[in-house]
């Protein structure tokens, strides 16, 4: 019975991989892949021209206390949802940068004659770790209430500021940030 189950799992894994392969786009579409596919609600990019100033304005505790003093539940709800959206936006940006670094690496390494499989596996582990951290961050923001995202997004802002810019022209939209 165990062999039957294992064989069926192997067959299903192969079918799923083939479906993904058949639907995959070619390398020229990498840029669009790194930009699309996000299920997180994003605010329009034009409203984030000066990200640091907006972050200070929106995430300050004073703003939250001011909104609470107004005693308007609808306003509080709007404030919380906007704050979450901004935090999610920043995590999505970081996630996009991880994807950009990964795609850039794969694009170069697939042509390298002296590629080291062990090194590749280690890097894959790091990419997976960082992507997981982003996912967990998104979860924390969704579950953490109105004040938790503030500190987190402040840190994320600093991370984002220190990030290297993707080198390839194909990732030009990321440079706008």
């Amino acid at each position: 019975m165990l062999i039957l189950v294992l064989c069926i799992i192997a067959a299903v894994a192969l079918v799923l991989a083939l479906v993904a392969f058949s639907r995959s786009r070619n390398a020229t579409d990498w840029a669009s892949v790194s930009q699309g596919g996000s299920t997180v609600r994003q605010l329009s990019r034009s409203s984030f021209a000066n990200a640091s100033a907006i972050q200070e304005a929106i995430f300050s505790r004073e703003d939250w206390e001011f909104i609470k003093r107004e005693g308007c539940p609808a306003l509080e709800e709007l404030f919380v949802s906007e704050r979450k959206a901004v935090a999610c936006y920043w995590l999505t940006v970081i996630s996009s940068r991880i994807s950009a670094i990964r795609h850039n690496h794969l694009k170069n390494s697939r042509l390298a004659h002296n590629l080291s499989p062990g090194q590749e596996l280690r890097l894959l582990g790091r990419f997976l770790y960082l992507s997981l951290v982003c996912r967990v961050g998104l979860l924390v923001i969704q579950l953490g209430g109105p004040l938790a995202p503030a500190n987190l997004t402040a840190h994320i802002q600093r991370i984002a500021d220190g990030l290297p810019v993707a080198r390839e022209n194909s990732f030009a939209p990321l440079r706008e940030n």
């Binding site: 991880i98 690496h105 390494s109 890097l123 960082l130 600093r158 220190g162 290297p164």
Partner: peptide, 19 residues
């Protein structure tokens, strides 16, 4: 390849430090 890998590692290290 070693140059490509070390470049990628440096970029990832900055991300990890931030996290």
């Amino acid at each position: 390849y070693s140059r490509i890998a070390s470049d990628t590692q440096q970029e990832l290290a900055k991300l990890r430090l931030g996290f």
